[in-house]
Simulated scan of single mutants.
Amino acid sequence: MMPNTSARPPRFTTPLGTCLRWLLILGLLLWGIPGQTQTRLNGFNLDDALIPAAELLPGGPPRDGIPAIDNPGFIDAILAPRDEVIGLAYQGETKAYPVAILNWHEVVNDYIGGQAVAITYCPLCATAVVLVAEHQSQPLTFGVSGLLYNSNLLLYDRQSESLWPQVLAQAVTGPMKGLVLPTLPLSLTSWQEWREAHPDTKVLSADTGYFRNYERDPYREYARRNALMFPIRNQSRALPLKEMVTGLVINGEARAYPHRALRNQTSPLYDTLGGERIRIETDTNGQPRFFNDKGKQLSAQPGYWFAWYAFYPNTQVWEIVPPAR
């Protein structure tokens, strides 16, 4: 989460007054106004949440302080070969969403192949998820709540104001609590890789209607340091915290596939997860794609190792198995 640079800082007369003021604000956020019983944060009702309400933390900006893109435009752009994009191919249509833009917006509400989708990216976790943004045949639109759980973006749908941890794609509060939305397979890869595979792709335009410097990466230094800004529930040093992996869950069994280990492998590879045989294809960046035995591509979760482990502490880590002699 980036700070809301448009907000004017409060003015207080003494350090003690500042401290007392912030304690009062925090108390009102966490415990509500006297006479009310609801637990609220950033305006969201956290009563009976499926995750510990005390572990939902403000990320800096208020609700919608990071604005979602609701009317995306697309162009025939040429990006730098190594520019990172979220690539999406669905129902014969292909689109690329530059991470340089998503760093500043985190959510794009869009349609592809006639399907309502929400393209989401959490810069703190480097996690990308494309939600099928529909419930009971009605489209959903998503915004940025300004809250985090396990350092991960908490989305909210504007229809019910339920909160959704991005990695889980599940509502954890509100009227939709417990609902899990389907996700679509995506590629978090370089522009060169995506363009070569999909030469007719459209690219999200930087003409978003917001004044942002999309050439500046506000998370550059954060990505270089093997340290976190916010606490997480589960942590493992089996891999560096910010090593890129792609996580996959089949029949309740979770596994993380490190991109570094996959980068020099010859495709295809094969694995068994949750009792099912899967085929793994990789690009030159080590970004894997997974297919079942019927050739259907499976939806998987790219991101930093710490983010995957925080939500799936029982995960295994894929290792290269030498051939039997």
Rank of each mutant, 00 (worst) to 15 (best):
T127K: 02
A77W: 00
G114K: 13
V85H: 10
P72H: 04
G65R: 11
G92D: 12
P81L: 12
D70C: 02
I78P: 00
P72V: 07
V99H: 02
H105D: 08
A96P: 01
V129L: 11
P81A: 12
A118Y: 00
A96Y: 01
V85Y: 09
F74G: 03
W104V: 07
R82D: 15
G113Q: 13
V130D: 06
T94D: 08
A100I: 01
A100K: 15
P72I: 08
G114V: 12
A118N: 02
P98A: 12
A77V: 02
G87W: 07
P98I: 11
G114Q: 13
D83R: 13
A77Q: 11
A80V: 09
V129T: 15
V117Y: 07
E106C: 09
A118R: 03
T94G: 01
V85K: 10
P81D: 14
N103K: 12
I69M: 01
A89I: 12
Q91F: 04
V132G: 09
Y90V: 13
G65T: 08
V99A: 12
A128L: 01
E106Q: 15
C125A: 15
I69E: 00
A80S: 15
E93C: 08
C122T: 09
V129M: 14
E93F: 04
P67C: 01
T127V: 15
G92S: 13
G114D: 12
A116K: 11
T120P: 00
N103H: 14
P123V: 11
V85E: 07
I66Q: 05
T120E: 05
T120I: 00
Y111T: 14
P67K: 13
F74I: 01
I86C: 09
P72E: 03
I101N: 04
V130G: 04
Y111A: 11
N103P: 00
I78N: 08
I75R: 05
V108H: 05
P98H: 08
I69L: 14
Q115M: 15
N71Y: 02
Y97G: 06
A126P: 00
D70M: 04
I69T: 01
D110S: 09
L124I: 08
P67Y: 00
V85F: 07
G73I: 00
V117A: 07
C125V: 06
A89F: 10
K95Y: 02
V107E: 06
V85G: 04
V99E: 10
I112A: 10
V99F: 04
P98Q: 11
R82C: 08
W104D: 05
Y97F: 15
A96I: 03
I119W: 02
A100Y: 09
G87N: 07
A77T: 04
A89K: 13
P72F: 03
A100P: 00
V132Y: 06
G92Y: 12
P67H: 04
A128I: 02
A89W: 05
H105E: 06
G87H: 06
A128S: 14
L102D: 07
I78E: 14
I69G: 02
V117R: 09
A89R: 14
L79V: 09
A116E: 09
